[in-house]
Write a protein that binds this DNA or RNA. Structure first.
Length: 680
DNA sequence: GATCCTCGAGTTCT
DNA sequence: CTCGAGGATC
């Protein structure tokens, strides 16, 4: 026990000094070197140790204070009652534990108010007879800084309260933040002037509030949500419940967030948390969690507070979207076109709800720019909340003597020396015919939904077939039979038949899909459709000369010569023959039948986010049928953008360019609207 | 020759 | 989603 206590003492000292240095980086330098979650982790460990050994707690421990420290620039202001911080929970289980403890402590039924935890800066506003007279930062919770002049420039903070009856003194608490749309616009402007952009809206808001010149603050487009009259026992005299006070504050013209909800069961609280975790990006401000508060003031008083946090409220923190991870290894992979892509293998890390183990680095230049090395600790996030991306290394954590990573000179799959043409960004494996990696990837691509869409033909099956010598090019697929397939691990009659059916079905796909499957450089879905429209058959395309090819709009010299060369190759010609013999469709049926109404003729449409009933593909097909061109990026030429749930940068772009946006219902209405009606 | 739009290709995890 | 690069356009 004595030994354990000594160990704990050392660790506690260590944690305190780490936390102090991170505080400095975060609050003073505005340049944190660890993620918020890791910081929380350090604090938790410290708190746990201090709970086990209470005699090691000192007043100077970071667990004993509430927030950052006041700076000398602005006059100190003592808060009427301390602005406490909140205890955190990080999962539904912890939330349940917290609720259970409260339930037992109170003994009665509990009502809650659930609010969004805005990622901004907590401030206190004083209204004297309805007039805004003073505003302060939270500071260390007891004493903050007087930033009245700067807060006066925030438009959503009323200078005067509405109505005629006001208490002599009203303290309003809330969060100042910078809307994401404003943040993005300002950062673009900074970038244009080659100035250092803000790391995130929170830092931008913090920096803006600490300006000496209020005119600068005014230009930063800050906004405000109010979340209560007081975080302590204080309250307006007239209300029994927090929710009443929120309504009251709203009636005074103060901005109360519209997404606040009341709840009375764990299920309701958990559902609120889950809902906003999923929809956090639908908002124009950053939130990092949900705050759950006991509604009745009477019950709050019974529960009381510790020195740093009230017992009647808790913050449910979302899993962070940015974490650090250790780079185990940097390696490269050869894709179906021979492009060699570097990627990092990471110690598994949870980011935004999933475990990430690897991330791409795109190419040599990207890797150099970021200067990621094996053994580095890197910051990882999920771009657009989906694709893991390495932001960059944490240089402080790089072990001394770590060498820079050098790009391999040989293909990892076939050992052929790699080449990088001057002026190009990619290293390539030139072993087009015999590189096993290129072949596997090609065969997978052939069966992918972008090409011939062969269900049940995945990476594993392809590899297994290749190992057994049953598959060397796509045409071999059409020679497979059940006796071959049942040799494969995990293949019984049923699954063999499924795959055979899928392969058979792929013979009848539109001609352009076959073109995509052939793996001709620079020929994807779009170009393949252009070519198929013009040349209608594989035969016609194969015999076309460079001029014929270039005469197609959208096909220039590069694409033309890529196609031309592909068909001049002897092995490729042999493959074409094999495919024809196998009975794969190599020409489109002549266009027949009446053309339907084309209400979207000439429109350029972008579809983004998840639509309520249509899949992206269905919506695309419908728009095309109606005569529209469907593209993937928003520009000045875009006619309108169809917006679903979780729409990201494209929606922002549309708003910026002032391009019309529609929801699915409106989109469908326009589809059915027959342009000029000719007869009944 | 520069600029804007698009497209192709590779990508992660469940 | 991100990057690089081809094609159209002025």
């Amino acid at each position: 026990m004595q030994h354990e206590r000594a160990l704990a003492g050392t660790r506690i000292e260590d944690l305190r000094s780490q936390i102090a240095s991170h505080d400095y980086r975060y609050y003073v330098l505005d340049r944190p070197t660890i993620s918020d979650a890791e910081y929380d982790g350090l604090m938790r460990e410290l708190r746990t140790l201090e709970q086990r050994f209470p005699d090691l707690v000192t007043p100077a421990s970071p667990t004993q204070r509430v927030g950052g420290k006041a700076s000398a620039l602005f006059a100190p202001v003592e808060h009427p009652s301390p602005m406490l911080s909140l205890d955190n929970v990080f999962s539904t289980e912890e939330l349940q534990t917290w609720l259970g403890r409260l339930q037992r402590a109170v003994g009665n039924h509990l009502d809650f108010v659930c609010e969004l935890k805005i990622d901004g800066l907590a401030v206190s506003l004083i209204y004297h007879n309805g007039v805004f007279v003073r505003g302060a930062t939270r500071g260390d919770g007891r004493v903050g800084e007087d930033i009245t002049a700067n807060l006066r420039t925030v438009r959503s903070i009323p200078a005067r309260l509405q109505g005629s009856q006001h208490p002599t003194l009203l303290e309003v608490r809330g969060e100042v933040y910078q809307p994401i749309s404003v943040f993005e616009r300002l950062n673009r402007e900074l970038a244009e002037r080659d100035e250092r952009p803000f790391a995130n809206p929170r830092n931008a808001a913090a920096g803006s509030l600490r300006q000496k010149d209020p005119a600068v603050t005014a230009a930063r487009g800050l906004s405000f949500w109010c979340y209560g009259t007081d975080a302590g026992a204080g309250r307006t005299a007239r209300a029994l419940r927090h929710s009443e006070d929120l309504d009251y504050l709203g009636s005074l013209g103060l901005p109360v967030n519209p997404n606040i909800e009341r709840a009375s069961t764990l299920e309701q609280v958990a559902a609120y948390c889950a809902k906003w975790q999923a929809h956090r990006h639908d908002l124009d401000y950053q939130i990092d969690g949900v705050v759950i508060k006991v509604d009745h003031y009477r019950q709050r008083e019974d529960l009381g507070a510790t020195s740093r946090a009230p017992r009647w409220a808790v913050a449910f923190k979302f899993p962070p979207e940015e974490r650090t991870a250790l780079v185990r290894r940097i390696a490269v992979h050869t894709g179906r076109t021979g492009r060699v892509t570097p990627y990092v293998e990471l110690e598994p890390v949870h980011v935004g709800g999933v475990t990430v183990t690897s991330a791409t680095l795109h190419n040599e230049d990207d890797l150099r720019r970021k200067d990621v090395r094996e053994g580095d600790t890197v910051i990882v996030h999920r771009a657009g909340d989906v694709i893991p991306e390495v932001v960059g290394p944490v240089l402080e954590k790089r072990p001394p003597g770590t060498p820079a990573w050098t790009f391999p000179t040989q293909c990892p799959a076939c050992a052929t020396p790699l080449v990088r043409k001057p002026g190009e960004a990619d290293w390539r494996c030139p072993n087009r015919k015999a590189c096993p990696s290129q072949t596997v990837e090609w065969l997978c691509h052939f069966g992918s939904p972008d090409a011939l869409d062969i269900e049940h033909l995945g990476y594993q099956t392809v590899t297994a077939l290749m190992e057994r010598g049953l598959l060397a090019d796509p045409a071999d697929l059409y020679a497979l039979d059940a006796t071959h397939l049942v040799q494969l691990p995990g293949f019984a009659e049923k699954s063999a038949q499924n795959l055979l059916d899928a392969i058979a079905a792929s013979k009848q796909r539109p001609f352009w899909r076959l073109l995509v499957g052939l793996n001709i450089r620079r020929v994807g879905a779009h170009v393949a459709q252009l070519l198929a429209q013009r040349f209608a058959s594989l035969e016609a395309l194969a015999t076309a000369n460079l001029e014929d090819l270039q005469s197609v709009e959208g096909v220039g010299p590069e694409i033309a010569s890529a196609v031309h060369e592909w068909f001049r190759d002897r092995e490729n010609s042999a493959l074409v023959k094999k495919l024809v013999q196998a009975g794969v469709r190599v020409a489109d049926e002549p266009a027949g039948g009446p053309v339907g109404p084309r209400p979207l003729d000439g429109k350029i449409v972008v579809i983004t986010g998840t639509l309520p009933t249509l899949s992206r593909e269905e919506a695309t097909a419908l728009a095309r049928q109606a005569g529209a061109r469907v593209t993937s990026s928003v520009s000045n030429k875009t006619s309108f953008v169809v917006v679903g749930q979780e729409a990201g940068s494209k929606l922002a772009k549309a708003q910026e360019l002032d391009i019309e946006t529609l929801d699915e219902a409106e989109f469908l209405r326009r589809l059915s609207r027959v342009a000029p009606r000719t007869h009944e």
